[in-house]
């Protein structure tokens, strides 16, 4: 079973590498955000897998919190990119 978990971990690492490449490569800021978002969700899975691999069940709480943070981070970055100001209130121009 360890080998299977390790194989999955390696697959997740590969995906993270690919997502990171896309995030660095761009070309637009939104490609970077897509890459970072994939990187973040893969981190959650990676932590969950490492919790299983190392038999350290407490790590799962870290994965849970990371899932929450990742979502908020993506939304916050998008807002920052759009409005150049995290404190901006509803000034969203609808088309």
């Amino acid at each position: 079973m360890e080998a299977v978990v390790l194989g999955t971990i390696l697959a997740i690492f590969t995906t993270m590498g690919l997502a990171l490449w896309r995030a660095i490569q761009g070309p637009s800021i939104y490609d970077t955000i897509v890459g970072v978002n994939v990187f973040g969700t893969k981190t959650v899975l990676l932590i969950a897998l490492i919790a299983e691999f190392s038999g350290n069940a407490d790590l799962i709480d870290v994965a849970l919190v990371y899932a929450l943070i990742n979502f908020l981070a993506v939304i916050a970055i998008l807002k920052l990119v759009r409005q150049r100001d995290l404190a901006a209130s509803r000034r969203v121009e609808h088309d």
Partner: peptide, 22 residues
Amino acid sequence: MMLTGGAFAVIGGIGVVRFPDV
């Protein structure tokens, strides 16, 4: 299930690199 999931993750990663626009 885990290995299939890992394989799909890699395929998705390849797609993120390979596809033409956002």
